[in-house]
Design a protein around this nucleic acid. Sequence first.
DNA 1: CATGAATGAGGATTCATTCAT
DNA 2: GATGAATGAATCCTCATTCAT
Lengths: 219, 219, 219, 219
Amino acid sequence: MSDREDQLVGEFPLMPKQERAQIKRDLLVKSGHELFISKGFEHTTAKEIAAHAGVATGTFYRYFSDKRQLLMSLLEDQIEMLMPPEPKWGVSNPESMLASLLELHDERLKKMGMQRLLPELLAKDKEFAQVLAAAKQKIFTRILSGLKRAYDNDLTWNDLDLNTVTWSVMTLAEHAPEKMKQCGNQTDYREVAKVICRLIFPPDVMKKINANEKVTEEE
Amino acid sequence: MSDREDQLVGEFPLMPKQERAQIKRDLLVKSGHELFISKGFEHTTAKEIAAHAGVATGTFYRYFSDKRQLLMSLLEDQIEMLMPPEPKWGVSNPESMLASLLELHDERLKKMGMQRLLPELLAKDKEFAQVLAAAKQKIFTRILSGLKRAYDNDLTWNDLDLNTVTWSVMTLAEHAPEKMKQCGNQTDYREVAKVICRLIFPPDVMKKINANEKVTEEE
Amino acid sequence: MSDREDQLVGEFPLMPKQERAQIKRDLLVKSGHELFISKGFEHTTAKEIAAHAGVATGTFYRYFSDKRQLLMSLLEDQIEMLMPPEPKWGVSNPESMLASLLELHDERLKKMGMQRLLPELLAKDKEFAQVLAAAKQKIFTRILSGLKRAYDNDLTWNDLDLNTVTWSVMTLAEHAPEKMKQCGNQTDYREVAKVICRLIFPPDVMKKINANEKVTEEE
Amino acid sequence: MSDREDQLVGEFPLMPKQERAQIKRDLLVKSGHELFISKGFEHTTAKEIAAHAGVATGTFYRYFSDKRQLLMSLLEDQIEMLMPPEPKWGVSNPESMLASLLELHDERLKKMGMQRLLPELLAKDKEFAQVLAAAKQKIFTRILSGLKRAYDNDLTWNDLDLNTVTWSVMTLAEHAPEKMKQCGNQTDYREVAKVICRLIFPPDVMKKINANEKVTEEE
DNA sequence: CATGAATGAGGATTCATTCAT
DNA sequence: GATGAATGAATCCTCATTCAT
């Protein structure tokens, strides 16, 4: 009835077809996200996702070939957020910078609620595992090159292997959120940041850097 | 071969009943292990495990109430091996000690092939996750108290939070094996050990420790 | 036939959705009914019921959570028919009344074909047994109160316990159909009715009642 | 050890082989009986019966081809007890005689605990149903011939069909135990006996019979 | 004879996917 | 496009029955 009245008024489709479809798709992705998180990937059925999105089972299959594809859509947007953050040296005080990066990372993960899902996926989906590994490798390379520059400027420990340091930085950054909870500590990003910095910069270098910073700030 | 020899000796029952049952049980556990690793826990069926062990489906259920129980059998033996190793300070050169612990841990994990299975289980089985978390907590406490003693003797950095250092040590030790592969590095336990030591001991302390050790060795 | 005629008329959707579903459900109920009767409840599988109804196994589970639920659907409609009938005295000649009630009851049971199923269910399903016992108790009470009124009017034997008479009436009425076959007699409802009446009314009372009736008829 | 000692003493097998087997068989029958009663025939497994009898599963199959055969053994002994009792007229006061028969029947059923099992069996096992029907038919015939003799001596109602009366007597006798419980009455065998007698003997005949009896007693 | 481990067919139930409406 | 009923392969698990010891 109301549809017909709309038509009398002049039939301005409130939304272009494609956009409506996009909305439905997004609804499904969102439903999938929530259900995957709360029940796990394997234990979520296509029917449930559709029901949760308020559409029919068949509609699910119009937009996705299967659960896995929906998952991939989900991950495409978020894969970067799962990665440990890449520090930007030289911008400011390294410890503060790292601390806020870690906090940001933690918040992202919390918002995604995806950490619990990830292990299942890594175990099950080799393709996904590869995608993730590649992304990680990219970050690794970038962090490493940053450290190399610092090394060339005599800012780092000179008796530690840079590859290993890079890996350590990434590992600590990546696990900071999940692990600190597990170990019962209140997450103290600052302390983790200090530890990470100690892996890279000898204490006297840190002093210099901070001194510079203050000078810069004063200027 | 040995069977035939037995027959030459006479026709003794090839094996006591109980032992044969145990062997069959072990076969099932082994099959479960292999299949869980290669296909993931969820994607392995009781039927498959039985078939892989060369027994009928029903036989599986004689020995285990379900997949999960077999898994638990599997884990009971191995849970300690999954834990990051607890370093024993003061025994010898910390770097060498750590390096060999890391190598040992890596070898264990490789032998178990279980790393890939673990994440899935942690995600799916809260009971198991708790067991593992408890074990980890125990190790955490022990490492922490070791570090505290070192701290009291002025052997550690005095500007780093010991909890955070402990967590970092555990995290790096735990992930050393899996991560170094992922990053494409040849596993260099020595370098990781050096990094971990750097988190704990300032370089000059390390020198002293090593000096002591040499003295000790010389004596 | 009717399908073909429909097609001649054009291609109207053969049936509204809901109605088709109802038809399918009914088909399943009917199949369940038939198979339960012919093979017994326990020996009928959901798969068989579905096959007999010409649908897939899964379809069965769309409509019923399991065999038992289908059975309950079946019984809800029929439970009253399984009960021994409640006589209505004073309406007409008691013997004729009873005879036709018995015949009606017999016909119902035959149509349901359920008698053979019932014992199994009573034995297996305590909930169902309770429901049935409650229904029986209700009828018992009503018959008893009818007999009490007759007793107060000096129409019944005065040396028989009314409870026992009531129970006897119900028992005979309930078993009349099944037993007469078993004993090889042609079912003679009239004779059973006479026996039941004899349990209640002394012969001279019966004569009076019949006389009254004739008078009434003559008027 | 003790076995060997027995042998030293001289090895008198305490029991002939066959008898020992018989004991084992009886144990199985007894276990089957108990389990069938408590869990129902279908829901009792051969393994359970064997375990309950303290023998191995395989032993069960040495004595019985399957569950059903054990059941039949069980019933052979007991089938007569399941039958409604056959009254012996002329022995004494019919009401007392019936009352005690009913009580006896009730006690037997209670002891067997079999009533609950019976319906399931009747529904499931046509052979058994036939056996039981035949036994019932036999009793029917005997009761009928008793009634005929009474009829020839003008002791019964002359307007009731003897077949129907016979069936009624059997039905009431058969269901007396189970039904009286269900209806919440205290089982009053005497009242049921009176009702049954009323179906057969007119009140004045009863008086005569009782008078005779007294005379007989006095003599 | 007794044992009880082993078998595997069979029943209940779920769910990814299709397709007529 | 959207719907959701229908499908049936696949899973979990049980249990009657056999047979090597």
